Simulated assay, not measured.
Amino acid sequence: MTRLRRAVWLALAMATAPALGQAADCREESFDGAGYILCEVDMQAEDLRLFLKDEEGENLGSFGRVNAMLEREGAVLDFAMNAGMYHSDRRPVGLYVDNGQQQAGLVTREGPGNFGLLPNGVLCVREGRADVIETLVFDAEAPDCRHATQSGPMLVIDGTLHPRFLVDSDSVYVRNGVGTSADGTRAVFAISQGPVNFHSFGRLFRDHLGLPQALYFDGNISRLYAPALGRSDIGFAMGPIIGTVQRVPPAE
């Protein structure tokens, strides 16, 4: 990237961020015998972004590298987690939009694995709101998202659990995902503190958090950055990462 292009990239990033940014509310809660960490984002007060590549086009892959990039624009990562499935080279499996630029297309067909367990969905981040939207609805409505990541399966669809979930399923993993309120102003990101099945994880969003739409991000590899709780998970490189950003006030 040339010096001029980098300067333009930084200027755009600064222009789209709030003055300082309110911190996400990260906390520990229990539901139905399982422990979770929840990070709640007020979409009218916080700066929620997706991250995949740096300004040079290199994969980020870790919370530390995201923070290093943000430092160059006078900001810091407040909370973050992995945000959707990806190929071995860390390309997103489905739709991926970063700062208004689509980098991977929407996938509407059924396929193998959890991603293809339809219905799946998209997290769409717009000005002042975030919405989990079922993929075929997203395809029909084509909302203009500043950031978007596709994953699957949907956990909750219009207040109903995914039809393929089994109460007594023995497929249990540490899992993470996101749910959104009907008005889009509330987004709650969750990661389990131990192995849970899909049915239990979906009920967390529907029955405990009262959210009508929720989307699964991943399992087993799930990781969290929540410095307020002493969490900064490490491991092999990730694909898409989502998190809230706070601007650092200038030194006096």
Rank of each mutant, 00 (worst) to 15 (best):
R186C: 01
G184R: 07
A140H: 09
G84Q: 06
E28S: 12
G57H: 14
G159F: 15
P195G: 02
I242D: 00
R146N: 04
N220Q: 12
L12N: 11
G21F: 12
R126K: 15
E134T: 07
V132P: 00
L209R: 07
E73M: 15
A182D: 07
G111F: 11
L209I: 04
G184L: 12
S62H: 13
D89I: 09
E40S: 13
D89W: 11
E29T: 10
N120P: 04
V132F: 05
R206I: 02
A190R: 05
V66N: 03
G194K: 10
T160I: 02
D32L: 08
L38C: 03
A19M: 11
E252G: 10
D139K: 14
V172N: 04
E252H: 13
A80K: 10
E58D: 15
V196N: 03
M85D: 01
P112W: 14
Y173C: 03
S200T: 06
L204A: 06
A130K: 06
N197I: 04
F205A: 00
Y86N: 01
R126F: 09
G116C: 08
L12A: 13
R6A: 07
V41W: 13
R175P: 00
F198S: 03
V107E: 05
L136S: 06
R72F: 13
L20N: 05
P163Y: 10
Q101N: 06
T149F: 13
L117T: 02
T180H: 11
A251P: 00
H199F: 14
G152T: 01
A182W: 11
S62V: 05
V248R: 14
L38D: 00
F138G: 01
L50Y: 06
Y96S: 08
A140L: 11
S171R: 14
D32G: 07
V93C: 04
A237I: 05
N67F: 13
L215C: 06
A23K: 14
F115Y: 15
L204S: 01
V107G: 01
R223V: 00
A83P: 01
V172M: 05
S88I: 05
Y225W: 15
